[in-house]
C-alpha cells in the first residue's frame, strides 16, 4: 500500500477525530485538508453559539499531523512537539470549518507545519497555526 493510503487509513482511525466528526478531504505530498461540521456539543459560548477554540485546535492539530505523515520525506507517524494557534475571528455558527495544513520542511527529526482554518467566508481566516512535529520511523 502506498504511503498516502497508509496515512489516510491512520487519520481515519483516530478515535478523537471521528468523535469530532472530522472528514479527511484531501491528503498528498505534505498537504492535508480536513473539514469539521458544526455541532452544538462543541459550543464554547452559548450566548453566541460559537464553537470553542479547543475544537478548532483539535482540528488543526489533526490536520497538521496528517500533512506530516503524507510528506514524501516522513517515514512513519508523528507527534506534536509544539503548536501555536492564532484566533482571528469567531467561526460563524452553523457553518462547517475547513483546515488546510502544509508541511513545508522536514529534517531527520523535525517537521515544520503551518495551517489555516476557514468557514464559508474563505477570504477571512478563522484561525492560523504553526507548529513543529516529531518525525517517527514507524507508525
Amino acid at each position: 500500500m502506498d504511503k498516502v493510503a497508509v496515512a489516510r487509513q491512520f487519520i481515519e482511525a483516530i478515535p478523537h477525530a471521528s468523535a469530532l466528526g472530522m472528514v479527511l478531504k484531501d491528503i498528498s505530498g505534505g498537504r492535508a485538508v480536513i473539514s469539521m461540521p458544526y455541532d452544538e456539543r462543541f459550543i464554547g459560548d452559548p450566548k453566541t453559539g460559537v464553537i470553542h477554540g479547543g475544537a478548532v485546535s483539535a482540528l488543526m492539530d489533526t490536520c497538521c499531523g496528517a500533512a506530516v505523515m503524507s510528506h514524501p520525506a516522513a517515514p512513519g507517524g508523528t507527534a506534536t512537539i509544539d503548536l501555536r494557534i492564532d484566533y482571528m475571528r469567531a467561526a460563524t455558527p452553523g457553518q462547517t470549518i475547513v483546515t488546510t495544513a502544509e508541511c513545508y520542511h522536514v529534517t531527520r527529526n523535525v517537521a515544520f507545519v503551518r495551517a489555516t482554518t476557514v468557514d464559508d467566508d474563505t477570504d477571512r481566516p478563522v484561525a492560523t497555526a504553526s507548529g513543529a512535529f516529531t518525525v517517527e520511523k514507524k507508525f
Binding site: A13, I14, P15, H16, A17, A19, L20, G54, S57, A58, L59, M60, D61, T62, G65, G77, A79, T80, L83, F139
Partner: peptide, 14 residues
C-alpha cells in the same frame, strides 16, 4: 474518544 494514536495508545494532542 480522547485517543489520538490507537497504537501506543496516547491522548490526542488536540
Amino acid at each position: 474518544n480522547l485517543i489520538g494514536n490507537p497504537f501506543l495508545p496516547a491522548l490526542h494532542g488536540g
